[in-house]
Simulated scan of single mutants.
Amino acid sequence: MAQPAAPPLPPPRPDLPAPPADGPGAPKAASAGPQTGPATEADTGCLERLDKLGVRFEKLSPVQEKGCKIGNPVSVSALSNTIEIAPASVMECSYAENLARWIANVVVPRASEHLQSAPTKLLIGTAYQCRDQRSGAKLSEHAFGNGVDVMGFEFDRRPPLRVKFQSEGSPEAAFQSAIQKEACSIFTTVLGPGSDDDHGDHLHLDMRMRKGDYRICQ
Rank of each mutant, 00 (worst) to 15 (best):
V74Q: 02
E92H: 04
A111P: 01
I85R: 00
L79C: 10
V90D: 11
V108D: 03
Q116A: 12
R101D: 09
N98M: 06
P109R: 14
N98G: 04
M91T: 05
S80Y: 13
S75V: 11
A88F: 06
R101S: 13
V108F: 01
Q116N: 13
S94M: 07
A111G: 10
A118C: 09
I83Y: 05
A88M: 10
A100L: 08
I85N: 01
V106G: 08
S89T: 14
E92Q: 11
C93Y: 03
S80W: 06
Q116R: 13
V107H: 02
S112T: 10
E97C: 02
A104C: 04
M91R: 01
V76N: 12
W102M: 09
V107E: 02
L115H: 02
S80N: 14
V74W: 00
V90K: 03
R110Y: 04
V106S: 07
T82M: 14
A86I: 12
V108I: 10
R101V: 13
I85M: 13
S94N: 10
S89Y: 02
S77P: 10
R110M: 05
S112C: 04
V108Y: 00
P87I: 07
N105D: 15
A104V: 01
T82P: 07
S75M: 15
A78F: 05
A104M: 06
I103F: 11
W102E: 04
C93T: 11
S75C: 15
N98S: 08
V90P: 03
R101F: 12
N98L: 09
S75G: 14
L79D: 09
V108W: 03
A88L: 05
V108P: 01
A88E: 13
H114A: 05
P109G: 15
L79H: 08
S75F: 06
S94H: 08
E113Y: 13
W102C: 04
A100R: 09
P109Q: 14
Y95C: 01
P87E: 10
A100T: 11
C93R: 09
L79Q: 09
N81D: 14
L115S: 01
L115A: 03
S112R: 10
N105S: 15
N98Q: 11
V74Y: 00
P87S: 09
A96M: 07
H114G: 06
A100G: 07
Q116C: 05
A88Q: 12
A118F: 10
A118S: 15
H114I: 03
V106Q: 08
V76F: 10
A104R: 11
A86C: 12
A104L: 04
M91P: 01
